[in-house]
Simulated scan of single mutants.
Amino acid sequence: MDRRLTAIVGVTLLVALAGCSGLAGSTGGPGNGPGDQATLDGRIDVAADGEATASPDRATIRVAVTASGSDAQAVGDDLAAADDSLRAGLTEWGLTEDAIRTVRYDVSETYESRENPEREQYRGVHQYAIELDDVDAVGEVIDVAIDSGADEVQRIQFGLSDDREAEVRERALQNAMANARDDADVLANESDLTIEGVHAVSTGGSGVSPYRVADSAAVAEGDAGGASTGIETGDVSVRVSVNVVYAVQ
Rank of each mutant, 00 (worst) to 15 (best):
E221S: 14
A72Q: 12
G69M: 11
V248K: 02
L193T: 01
E115G: 11
A80T: 05
V168A: 06
S70G: 13
V201H: 03
G10W: 01
T91C: 08
D83C: 08
I100S: 03
R4E: 11
D185S: 10
A47D: 15
Q157A: 13
V65T: 08
Q121E: 15
R62S: 12
R101F: 05
P34T: 00
D71L: 07
G28T: 02
I231M: 10
V201L: 08
Q37Y: 14
N32T: 01
E196L: 14
E51T: 12
I61E: 06
G94R: 06
E190M: 10
A217S: 10
M177A: 13
G76M: 08
A180S: 13
G29M: 09
A64Q: 12
V244T: 05
A176M: 01
S241D: 12
Y211E: 06
Q157E: 15
G204Y: 02
S216E: 14
T194R: 11
D183Y: 10
D98C: 07
N32Q: 08
Y246A: 11
G205L: 09
Q154S: 13
T39W: 07
T12K: 01
T110V: 01
G139Y: 01
E232W: 01
V125C: 07
S202A: 13
S228H: 06
D134W: 05
A184Y: 04
G226Y: 04
R58L: 15
A214D: 14
S70W: 04
D235I: 00
L86I: 03
S206Q: 07
Q154G: 11
Y128N: 03
Q127G: 14
R169V: 06
A188T: 04
S68A: 15
S161K: 06
A67S: 13
V125Q: 12
E221C: 10
D192R: 03
D235T: 01
S228G: 11
V103E: 13
Q127P: 06
G207R: 00
L17K: 00
H199N: 14
F158A: 04
R43E: 15
I156S: 03
H199D: 12
A188M: 11
D147F: 12
R58H: 09
A218E: 00
A18E: 06
V236P: 04
N32I: 00
V103I: 09
R212G: 10
I61D: 05
N32H: 07
I130R: 04
V135S: 07
G149K: 00
D41P: 12
A217R: 05
Q154P: 01
T229D: 12
V138T: 09
